[in-house]
Design a protein around this nucleic acid. Structure first.
Lengths: 143, 143
DNA sequence: CTTGCTATTGCAAGTAATTGCAATAGCAAG
DNA sequence: CTTGCTATTGCAATTACTTGCAATAGCAAG
C-alpha cells in the first residue's frame, strides 16, 4: 500500500488521522476503475483488514466524500455508489430504458466558471446524475 | 384536492393509476415550498389517508421521480429529499460551513443544449448538487 | 352500471445505512 | 521513545429504505 499520495498529507495536516481502515478503503477506490457500492468495498477491504465493520466503511465513505476525495453518485432507487475523484465524470441516464453514459468533467467546466462569477463559489466536488430520454426512447414518447 | 393538473391525465394515458395515495403525496409536494424527506411526507399525507404505509410513500416517491414529476436531491450522508418539479433549481453547498444556495434551472440550459448536440439525449429531469467552497471559506483554505 | 384485467397497496420481512458509547490507537509534543 | 489528547473504531441498537406476495381497487371496455 503506497502512502505517498498528496491528499494523505493534506488530510493529516487538517488534523484527521490516517488509519489503516481509511488507507485501505481509499486504496481500493484508487485502484478500481468505475463505481463501487459500500458492500463491494467492504468485501474487498475486509481481506486486508479482517476486523473491519460495515459501519466503518459507511462512515469512511461519508468522510472521504466530505473531504472531496471520493465522489458519490445517486443512481436512483436509493443506490449509492462511490468512486475515486481522479477521472471526473458524470452520468446521463435514460429514464425509459436505463441506458447510461458518461459525461466528461470538462463538459461542465464552463458552468463552474459561471458559478464562480455569479456566486463566488469555487466548485471542487461534484457528481451529477442527469436523467433524460435517449435518442431511441424519444421516438416512443411523442404521440 | 384538485385533480385537474395536466400531468395527471398524462399519467393515466401511460397506463398508470391515479390512486388516492399518489394524488395525496403529489398534492403535499405540490403545496410545499422546498424539500421534504420521506418521513415528513408520510406524516403529512397520513392525515388524509389514515391507512397509508411508509412503504407506499417510498414506492410512490421513486415512481414520481422516475416519471419526472418530482426531483430527488441527495444532500449528503444518505439522506434523500424530494420536491415538486415546478421551480427547477439545483444546489450549491459549501463543504466547509454547510452554507447552501439555490441555482436556477436556467443556468444549466446551455449545458442541456450541449448534451443534446453531443449525445442526442434530451434532458428532462435533473437535480444536481454541487459541492464547493463559498467565498468566505476559501480564505481558510490557502496557507 | 357491471366486468375483468392488472397496477398498486398493505403487510411483514429483509437489506442498507446511521449512530451512541466505551475502548482503541494516531500522532504531535516533549 | 514515551505521554497525553482526542479522532476513530467496533459493537450493538436504531433508523432508513426496499421487496415478495396476496388482497384490493383503478379504469377501460362492453
Amino acid at each position: 500500500m503506497r502512502n505517498d499520495h498528496p491528499e494523505l498529507s493534506w488530510l493529516r495536516e487538517q488534523g484527521y488521522r490516517l488509519t489503516p481502515q481509511r488507507l485501505a478503503i481509499l486504496d481500493v477506490l484508487r485502484n478500481t476503475h468505475g463505481h463501487l457500492n459500500p458492500t463491494e468495498i467492504y468485501q474487498r477491504v475486509s481481506q486486508d483488514i479482517p476486523g473491519l465493520t460495515e459501519a466503518t466503511v459507511y462512515r469512511t465513505l461519508n468522510f472521504l466524500a466530505e473531504q472531496g476525495l471520493v465522489l458519490v453518485a445517486h443512481l436512483g432507487r436509493g443506490r449509492l455508489v462511490y468512486e475515486f475523484t481522479e477521472h471526473d465524470h458524470h452520468h446521463l441516464i435514460c429514464r425509459q430504458c436505463g441506458d447510461m453514459r458518461e459525461i466528461d468533467h470538462l463538459e461542465l467546466k464552463g458552468l463552474y466558471k459561471q458559478f464562480l462569477n455569479n456566486t463566488g463559489y469555487q466548485i471542487n466536488t461534484i457528481h451529477a446524475t442527469f436523467f433524460g430520454l435517449c435518442p431511441d426512447c424519444q421516438k416512443d414518447w411523442s404521440p
